[in-house]
Amino acid sequence: MTPYFNAVATTLYSIFEGMAVTTSYLFRRPSTIQYPNKLEKPLEEQLSDRYRGILQVDTSVCIGCRICEKTCPIDCIAINLEKNKETKERFLTRFDIDISKCMFCGLCSENCSTCAIYHTKFFNGATQNVDELVVRFVDSPIVLYKHRKDSDPKTREKDLSGVIVKQKMVKQRMKKQKTAKQEMPVNKISKHKIKEEIL
């Protein structure tokens, strides 16, 4: 008979204890962060400085060593370099990052000797078209950076809010929309052609 009543007593007591815990939460502060429109402080301040967001390239300090391209395990970085044969100056003609492929592992930025490529705190780069997520950082050829003794580019202040990448993405989207409106049928044919070529 005792186990019978013991069961009743323990059940009621455990429910009582549980209710006391849940009631106490009615007087405690909610832990929700009301993203995006009721934030207590801007999101940028809430993320840590090491946050691995969307990659950004500061092309003015890129030395063109291509280490980032080589270390990337999924080949989401593409770099083209050109050399002027007369002046023997080297140019950066292409630095593309496919953000839709990127898995934000940090291997590329870790090995960069000048911190030209680094992670920003910018993360909400959603678009309606996957192709728009290929960010092209070089519009016109840029002379490669050379190490100077007086300054160390690693210590410079990085733009962690990702201004460049945001601008590039917006620009590309506008451009895409314009070309899409004008060359709708052409686009389709070209895509078809590419597929035929592959096959």
Binding site: S31, S48, R50, Y51, R52, C105, G106
Partner: peptide, 21 residues
Amino acid sequence: RERECINDIMEAICGARLTYS
């Protein structure tokens, strides 16, 4: 809610909340 605190610490340590590398 408690895990969120750990995630914040992890973010401060390595920069990611789930896929740490």
